[in-house]
Amino acid sequence: MTRPHGILRAGFPYLTTLGMRRVTNFPTDISFGEDEKLYILMRSEGVATIRIWSVNDMDELTDELEGFSSYGTEDGQFIWPVNILTGPNGDLFVSDEYTNRITRLDNEGNFISKFGEQGSGDGQFDGPTGIAFDPSGNLVVCDSKNHRIQRYTIDGEYLQSFGNFGSSGGELNLPWGIEVDENDDVYVADWGNNRVQVFNNDGDLKNTFGRTGSGDSEFQRPTGISVDSHGDIYVADWGNNRVLQFNKDGDQVWSFRGDATLSKVARNYMLTNAVPNRLRESGRLEDERYIRRPRSVRVDENFRLFIPDYESYRVQVYQKDFIELDETQFAAPLRNPTLEVT
């Protein structure tokens, strides 16, 4: 897909909220399946599982929930899973920063394969976190505690590694999230350095943005990262309880702090619970809208932004509203800001 010359940003309205406590607890990451299906990776201490959910949410809370995988070290189980990705045939790829492996499951949860082992050599991991596919279908992995990025074939054959510990340009400190765009540029959420770094496919630094803080273009432990097909970059800003949106050059254009409303399943649950409804009447209800401790952010092919709202047990969804522009509709970049009236 070719990026448009420019886009008219019409807005980024809130769309909906999915899930609730009991069914989508501690959503760490999500991936997309067919027919509006979502795979929600749920992780907390002692719990690791994948919930199958729908963008259409669920009408009523039921015990007949779809999902698979559990906490453990056997094949197909996870201890500290971080990312989930949908790959060829709808297979799912899950990173686990404790067992130091990448696991491949089919879309019904059956174990297919795994690769990785503890270590700091080629083909080894110390806490793999973010995973992403490159344009060739290889897997790029944040090898977090080794402070580096590694590339593998989809079958786990080692291809490449770059990065080392530090805070200078190109160096990494416990990187968490990763994304690769259609040009094979690699975007890394550099967790410990509170910044994003962009590398080309040889591992050379192309761009860096962000610094420590809570203002514009500032982070408190960036976790997940995604890039849409316009080149816009979305970063989950864990400690600031928000998601920041940057254009392809790394300029912040938007922030998402949360607009949650009651999901369909939550509404129906609350209709049968009188006491919580009374408590909502005297509590500070506004707090309920905000994102809490996001660990991931994902954007689908329809430009819907999915924010797994980790400590609120739900997913908030936004819809990018835009018009693509051609050369006549979008002026050349300005070298300097201007105060001319336009």
Binding site: M20, A266, Y269, P276, R280, R292
Partner: peptide
């Protein structure tokens, strides 16, 4: 405070 359900 808000109740545990639906969002923690």
């Amino acid at each position: 405070p808000l109740s545990l359900y639906p969002y923690g």
